[in-house]
Amino acid sequence: MIKQDIKQYKNVWVFIEHNDGKIERVSLELLSKGAELAKDLNCEVCAFTVGDKVEHFAKEVGEYGAKKFYIIENSVLKEYRTEPWRNAIVYLIDKYKPEVALIGATTLGRDLAGTVATKLSAGLTADTTALDIDPSNKNLLMTRPTFGGNLMATIFCPDNRPQMSTVRPGVFKAVKNQTTPEVIKDKYDITEDQVVKKIIEKVQTGEEKVNLSFYEVIVSGGKGMGKKENLKLLEDLANVLSGTWAVSRKVVQAGWAPQSRQVGQTGQTVHPKIYIAAGISGAVQHVAGMKSSDIIIAINTDPQAPIFEVATYGIVGDCLQILPKMAEMFKQKLVK
């Protein structure tokens, strides 16, 4: 392992992920958390990103407390492609030497972080859900779920810098904390003919191949939904809560929904803040995929249904009645 002079490294850096000219929420969440860490470390929280035109993000990252904003602008970096973005970011980190670098654990973030860390020979902790500073030695303590949420591990990185982590969206709160960041514009020379990867087409489906784990609210239905047409009730409530809908395996087997919506052992593992299970019995294979949700609300006509064993709140009743009523009443309360 390469020995580093870790004292050269200073400040907490947060990667600003952006898509179509918009900053991903997780980046703002990390700026807020980064500001707390910077206070404990007696240093500054800084934002960094690369892209075609990114300087205008300075205003928004300033609203969330970034003291400095390190950027590289180049038209080749317009759309995310692993290798050119990696090279530009590795250049920035090598040059300015932050002690901590945080990246959202999104599809893009997880694609990027592993390759950046490898180039830097840095330690990288995946999919963190808690970040703290060890008071005795100022190391970053990164806590993450493994084994599908069955085991938590606290990881640290004593001898290498930056201490890198991808952090799960929705874990920390984005809090406004107005500053005017100093923008540090750097240059990275690259031309399109040096990039071997080409994007042929982008399709916004949002539908068929959905990644359920990205949602903070999931409204899930089981065989108790009765028939395919009733799944619309899941979607309606999910829309009210700005979440998405999912199903049990029996629903997939009945042909009511695609497999990409299935939660469980042979479906997707999800950890949303709120999971509503409607007409789902709560078989172990289903529960394996959702039991680490923060709040579980179960709706089932059978008071003995095993789903109530893991539910935070249980409702004995007909989901076909309760779901539309919930959508209607919640809608009045929620201002979008």
Binding site: M1, S121, A153, T154, I296, E309, V310, T312, Y313
Partner: peptide
């Protein structure tokens, strides 16, 4: 020895208790 990340501790998350029935 040559891995930059180290596991400081591993622990199991708290067991899910049966929650509250709303009537």
């Amino acid at each position: 020895k040559n891995s930059p990340t180290k596991v400081k501790k591993a622990f199991t998350p708290p067991k899910r208790e049966r929650g509250e029935m709303i009537e």
